[in-house]
Design a protein around this nucleic acid. Structure first.
Length: 482
RNA sequence: GGCGGGGUGGCCAAGUGGUAAGGCAGAGGACUGCAAAUCCUUUAUCACGGGUUCGAUUCCCGUCCCCGCCUCCA
């Protein structure tokens, strides 16, 4: 394994060196469960999922932790609007999140810690900081003294003195310094709260990740992931809380993904331009969605629009078509000729090792498919060597696209096959009629039958040995906004 | 204002100090009754102006434009 990752802290690509040879610990900032996942969340999920899969593919044992923020201002506000307990909201959207992640073919976390399940760990960390005079309690709130941590700003490359001393700082009357941030918030009427040494209250946002990451992965865990928009203040504060209290290194590598854009704007709840992830998946399908997510390097912005999703759908068709064709013409007793596939495997690995260059990795798969398609004709004619080559290429495509990139080609072909089995007799009957029509040179009838089948998603292809057919993934009609 | 990222063919998108992967779309051709799928051919001097260099799209400086963060945010 010679993976190189761009590390936000060092602002450079650095060789990935795990804390412990052979295993990797990953922590990913999870959702605040207050509404449905949107397409932007999906990007974080896919980027971290592919990183995780690639590490495992490279032979490492991965421990993947993603938290759930189940107590937060927005959850409380939503609960008030709906007149239910905040826990109802948190439970509902935790379930929804997990379901959406399943639909996106995201491997579930090994550990999914809840903020509300780690009050003791958070309080212990806060107390430690107070004991060290790096935090202070005021009227039941506890704030972190930013200026007492000399490393503050190292992740986001900010100088403490340059930071905007905003006018709209919350709790500015109680903070010693406007830059200080809350780790514990005193209970307000009708809010969920937990007892603490500083009075009843609830945790601030940043403290949960510092506490839970170290609780489940230990200090100096390998990779911390999150959206680029979390670099400051969230990740900066996570580092500050842990390193101010314990010294050492909080996380060894920081991987951040770029934002999804709608037109020129970031897709976000506050802008109000979000598209629900489930809705996008229902429209476009898993394979096209994941290929779209992988169509740009993970740190650059990615625009969600119809044209790009259609491109991704076309790519998905090309990949699945090749695998289907290869499997159709290869006889059962054929064994794959791996030597043909190996250069493609090496090309894929080379670019993935380079900071997970997914667009280049997909390009490598395209070259694999081109190679395979090129051999298809001879293989179909019975050339044994070419059959072995084609089989190896199809196997490799499925291995890389599915196991590493999570595109789900095999699953899709399986679904299509099930459908084909069910409608087979019907289609065969129509094709018999069409065959007769063609023999009679009645092309009008023949084409009408084919058009009808096409309209229902059945692709008919005429070959030297008669017509073959299969169920194709439907391409959605073009709509203004995906 | 501070910090960071970016401007590559019609569109998307990699990449490199020695004249630029891959995909989509388009055009032409092969195959086909016509299609579909597939194959072949075909389209760029890399925002602009300087500089360094034998040579820059790739390094440096400046200009213009776009985006993100600086408040909740994947």
């Amino acid at each position: 394994m010679s993976l190189v990752l761009f590390d936000t802290l060092r602002r450079d690509k650095v060789p990935f060196e795990p804390r412990e040879a052979g295993s990797v610990s990953m922590y990913v900032c999870g959702p605040t469960v207050q509404s449905d996942a949107h397409v932007g969340h999906g990007r974080l999920a896919v980027v971290t999922d592919v990183l995780r899969r690639y590490l495992a593919f490279s032979g490492l044992t991965v421990t993947f932790v993603q938290n759930v923020t189940d107590i937060d201002d927005k959850i409380i506000m939503r609960a008030r609007r709906e007149k239910v307990d905040p826990a109802v909201i948190a439970t509902r959207y935790t379930r929804a999140w997990n379901r959406s992640m399943d639909l996106l073919n995201i491997q579930p976390p090994d550990i999914q810690p809840l903020a509300t399940g780690h009050l003791l760990e958070m309080q212990a960390l806060i107390q430690e900081l107070i004991d060290q005079d790096k935090a202070y309690a005021v009227d039941g709130d506890v704030f972190f003294r930013v200026r007492r941590f000399e490393g503050y700003g190292k992740l986001s490359r900010r100088q403490v003195d340059d930071m905007q001393q905003g006018d709209d700082v919350v709790d500015s009357d109680r903070k010693e310094d406007p830059l200080d941030f809350a780790m514990w918030k005193s209970a307000k009427p009708d809010e969920p709260s937990w007892p603490s040494a500083w009075g009843d209250g609830r945790p601030g946002w940043h403290i949960e990740c510092s506490a839970m990451a170290v609780k489940h992965l230990g200090e100096g865990f390998d990779i911390h992931c999150g959206g680029l928009d979390l670099v400051f203040p969230h990740h900066e504060n996570e580092i500050a809380q842990h390193e101010a209290a314990h010294g050492g290194t909080f996380a060894r590598h920081w991987v951040h993904n770029g934002m999804v854009r709608m037109g020129e704007d970031k897709m976000s709840k506050s802008v109000g331009n979000v598209v629900a992830l489930d809705e996008a998946l229902a429209t476009w399908g898993l394979g096209p969605m994941r290929l779209w997510y992988l169509s740009a390097q993970h740190r650059t912005p990615l625009t969600f629009d119809t044209e790009r999703l259609r491109d991704a759908s076309t790519v998905h068709q090309r990949f699945t078509t090749f695998v289907r064709s290869a499997r159709q013409i290869v006889s059962d007793d054929t064994s794959p000729d791996v030597s043909v596939a190996d250069p493609h495997r090496a090309a894929f690995i080379a670019v993935m090792d380079d900071d997970l260059n997914a667009p280049a990795a997909v390009a490598a798969l395209h070259e694999l498919v081109s190679d395979g398609n090129d051999r298809l004709k001879k293989a179909a004619a019975g050339d044994q060597a070419e059959q072995q080559a084609v089989l190896a290429l199809a196997d490799l495509l499925v291995e890389l696209a599915d196991r590493v990139l999570g595109i789900g080609i095999d699953d899709w072909l399986g679904e299509a096959a099930a459908l084909e089995a069910r409608i087979g007799p019907l289609v065969e009957g129509l094709l018999d009629a069409r065959k007769q029509a063609r023999a009679d040179r009645d092309f009008e009838t023949a084409d009408a039958i084919r058009d009808q089948l096409t309209a229902t998603g059945v692709v008919v292809e005429d070959g030297p040995d008669g017509a073959t057919w299969y169920v194709a993934a439907p391409l959605p009609d073009p709509t203004p906004d995906a």
